[in-house]
Structure formats: structure tokens, C-alpha cells
Simulated scan of single mutants.
Amino acid sequence: MPSDALDVAGLTVRHRDVLAVDGLDLRIGQGETVALLGPNGAGKSSTVSAVLGLVRPAAGRVRVLGRAPADAVRAGCVGAMLQHGGLPGEARVGEVVHLVRRSYPDPWPLDDLVATTGIGGLLGRPVDALSGGQRQRVMLALALAGQPPLLLLDEATSAMDVEGRCAFWATMRDLAARGTTVVFATHHLEEADAVADRVVVLAGGRVVADGSSAAVRSAVAGRSVRLTADRVPDDVPGVTAGTRRGGVVTLATTDVEATLRGLLDAGVPLTDLEVRGASLEDAVLSLTTGAAR
């Protein structure tokens, strides 16, 4: 068994005249939980599609557990939840799950699959009667039906409420503990920050950052100062940008000490003061904006 769950080298994907992925190199080891981050058009979904063999690359190589993508999918090595995936209408959930499980030589035991994905109360329900969050749980069950060692998720929690997302990521952590490699593309950066062992930031079809969430955040200079204040002068030292929400002011600064001294000198009370480093959202925005320029 190869050490890498995913080995991508020089991947280039074009959609007619649009260059979606531009010579991307990416290696993901078995058992990792990796978030693919970046704005719309960064190449996340195109990369996932290439790994699944759904698009033909213009150049480059993709190996999934040492196999070509199509061979890995046929062997049941990959499970996927795609952004625009669907379920057959006029069928019940249990019927669909049974049909998909039968297509694999060694399917996930039904009782464990149902318990893991939380669809126990849905098996007798018509597919057309499911809510958005329930459909996503069923889609997860289908993706896991063949006990795949690699799971690919493309905006998997987009239709879920907060409670549903918390339950979903608890399931992902359980799968990771069992040795499953989880690769997910998401716009919910707080999920990536909380769940991923590693984040890969894409922009313009290329990798612009790759490492732990803490490492990616630390690569962005600057901090923010937040406080409750009626007024803040326009010329506070070190401040590069500022926002106000009600009485709460947030200042981006390159020099925290100079900013705090300037506020005190201006007679601004440091009420409810909070100083923090760049968030993952700050870091991704800075990295992808810089790459675009």
C-alpha cells in the first residue's frame, strides 16, 4: 500500500478557454484531514473532479492510493460528496442505500453505517421528503458505503444548520481516528481551523500556502485590536484599517504597542480590549488577494 493517499503532480485543468488548475502539485498522506481553501474559481472543485476522474486533465498526473483515478473509484477506494450531487427521486432512503452497498464487494456493515451517519430515522422516508441537511447525511452514507480509505468532500455542509454541521464534523473526526483520509473543500473557514490537520490555500489554480492552520495564520503579518469606544482618531499609529459594528471598533495594526499608546494618548479608554493575531480568514484573504494581484 502506498504511503500517499493522494499524489498530484503538475495538474492542469482547462474548461474551454478557462485555466482552472495551473500546474498544481499536492501530496496528501494517508490518515490526514486536509482542507482545500480559496475563493470561488480558485480551482478547488476542479481539483476534486480530477481526483475523481470526472474531468480529463490537460497535463499532469494524479494517483489515488497508487492508482489512476478511475481505477481507484472502481475499486471502491474513494468516497465523495460533491457540491451538486443528487439522489434518485421516487425512492426511499433505505432502498438507495441498499442499492449502493450492493455495488461494493465489501460494503460497510449496514448497522454501523447507519449509526455513523445518523440516518437511522430516515431509511423508510422518501428521498423527495428529505430536508437539505438530511439529504447531506444520506449522501455521506452513500459516500461511505464501500468503506473507502479516502473521502472527498466539496462544500459538504452548505445545506446544514449549525447543529447539523457540528454533528457532521464529529463524524469526520471519528472517521479520521479510524484511519480514513479526509480531504474537504469549504468556504466555512472556522470549520477548517477547527477540524483540519493541514490547510492548502489555492488561488488562480495554484497552491499559495500549505501547512497547519497556525502556520498559515502566522505567515500573515499584523494583528487586530478590538475595543468598545465612542470615538477613535483617524491617525492612530500603526493602524492600516478599521471597522465599527455598533460600539465595537476593530483596528488592523502593524504595531500593537504603538497603536495602544496612541489610543491612550488620545484619551480613548481601552474598554473590553482584545488583541489577537490574524485569523485563518484574514490569512486566506491576504494570501489569495496577493496572489490575484
Rank of each mutant, 00 (worst) to 15 (best):
G43D: 06
Q136C: 07
S286K: 14
L153I: 07
D128I: 07
L260D: 09
R61W: 02
D17M: 00
D282L: 04
L19Q: 04
T254P: 06
A292V: 05
G247Y: 06
A266V: 11
T243R: 13
T47V: 14
A35C: 13
T259W: 05
A194G: 06
A192E: 01
D4F: 10
H187M: 01
G238L: 14
A221K: 04
G205F: 07
T288I: 07
D197H: 15
V114L: 08
D128F: 03
A221E: 03
D234R: 15
L285F: 14
A75V: 12
D17V: 06
V268N: 05
F168E: 03
G262F: 00
A35W: 01
V96E: 01
H15I: 03
G247E: 12
A42W: 01
V97K: 06
V216C: 05
L140G: 04
L151H: 04
D193P: 10
A221M: 00
L142Y: 01
Q136E: 03
G60E: 12
A80L: 07
T289Q: 12
D272E: 12
V21Y: 03
T228R: 15
A252S: 15
A20V: 01
T253F: 08
A221D: 02
A20W: 03
P2E: 13
V73K: 09
G179Q: 11
S212F: 11
D161G: 05
L280V: 08
G133D: 07
T33R: 07
R178S: 14
A35F: 08
V78F: 09
V97H: 04
A9W: 07
R226H: 02
L122S: 06
A115C: 02
R173F: 05
V138S: 06
L36C: 09
T288S: 06
R16C: 01
L36A: 10
V207M: 10
G179W: 08
H188L: 13
R206V: 08
D235V: 12
P107Q: 09
E90F: 13
R14L: 13
L270I: 07
L280P: 02
D193K: 09
S212Q: 12
V182F: 03
P233L: 11
V239C: 13
V207G: 05
E155H: 08
T288W: 02
T157Q: 03
D272K: 02
V195W: 07
V162W: 01
V208Q: 10
T186V: 07
V220E: 03
L189H: 08
E281M: 00
D174Y: 11
L99R: 15
A278L: 00
P237V: 14
R67F: 08
I28G: 02
A266H: 10
S286D: 15
A80N: 07
L82R: 11
V97L: 14
R125N: 00
T253S: 14
T186N: 00
R173N: 11
D154R: 05
D154V: 04
K44V: 11
G23D: 05
V51S: 06
D272Y: 01
P109I: 04
Q134V: 00
V195I: 15
G53A: 04
L113N: 03
V18K: 04
E257F: 13
V216F: 06
